[in-house]
Amino acid sequence: MDAQTQLELEAATYRRMRQHLMQDRTDVQNIDMMNLTGFCRNCLARWYQQAAAEKGIEMSKDDGRQAFYGMTMDEWKANYQTDATGAQQEAFKTAFAENVDKKG
């Protein structure tokens, strides 16, 4: 497979994953994703922002989130986010420390 085809397949896979998370499974909470996988929609938005920075494109945290979510965080929270339980919040502390604090 040539490099361009690989790039196109990877981009198509990213777009499908984004659609799955943002349209097909809005019921899946970020906190559950983070607790189970070590990343969530916010991580994906941050990685998007970091990739833009590597290309010399300035993008704020909010801009990165809006690019990934297709809406502001306030809109996402109002439409889809539910309150986390105490157990979810405790598990999140560990997941965040293990996956975000260490890697940035």
Rank of each mutant, 00 (worst) to 15 (best):
A3W: 04
Q50D: 11
C40H: 02
M71P: 06
Q89W: 05
N30C: 08
A3S: 10
N99V: 14
M17D: 04
T13G: 13
G56D: 01
M1Y: 08
L9H: 01
F68V: 03
D101T: 15
M22H: 05
R16K: 10
D62E: 12
M17S: 09
A3N: 03
A97K: 15
K93I: 03
M34H: 00
S60T: 15
M22N: 11
Q88V: 01
A45R: 02
E98I: 06
Y80H: 13
A78V: 03
E75N: 12
Y69K: 08
E10A: 08
T82W: 10
K102V: 13
M73C: 06
R18P: 02
D32P: 03
R65Q: 10
R15L: 15
A53H: 12
G56V: 03
T94Y: 09
Q29N: 08
A12Q: 06
G86Q: 12
Y80V: 05
Q4A: 11
G104C: 13
C43M: 03
N42A: 13
E58R: 04
M71F: 07
M1N: 13
D27M: 01
A78W: 04
D24W: 04
R16M: 12
L44M: 13
A12R: 07
A91W: 04
N79K: 15
E98S: 06
Y14E: 12
Q50Y: 04
Y69T: 07
D62L: 00
A87G: 00
M73A: 15
A91H: 00
D101Q: 15
R65T: 01
K93F: 02
F39G: 01
Q19R: 14
L44A: 08
K102F: 09
A97W: 09
K61F: 00
R15C: 14
R15H: 10
M71C: 15
D74T: 13
L44Y: 02
T26R: 14
T72R: 11
W76E: 01
D74W: 05
N79L: 15
F96Q: 08
K102L: 15
M73Y: 12
L9P: 00
M73Q: 15
A51G: 11
M73K: 15
L9Q: 11
N30Q: 09
A97G: 15
T13Q: 14
A84K: 06
V100H: 11
R46Q: 11
A84Y: 03
T94S: 11
D83K: 14
A53I: 08
N99L: 14
D62A: 11
Y48L: 13
I57Q: 13
T85Y: 08
A53Q: 12
Q19T: 12
K102I: 14
R65E: 10
T26I: 05
E98K: 13
Q50L: 14
M59C: 08
R41F: 04
R18K: 15
T72N: 08
M1D: 09
D27A: 06
W76D: 02
E90Q: 13
A53F: 02
Q49I: 04
Y80F: 12
Q23C: 02
E10R: 07
F68Q: 00
M1E: 11
K55Y: 01
Y14Q: 06
R25Q: 02
S60D: 06
E58N: 07
H20V: 10
I57D: 09
G86E: 12
L21C: 09
G86A: 09
G64W: 00
K102G: 05
N30W: 04
R18L: 07
T5F: 01
Q66W: 00
G56K: 00
M34E: 05
T72W: 06
M71D: 07
A52Y: 04
S60N: 09
L21S: 04
D83H: 08
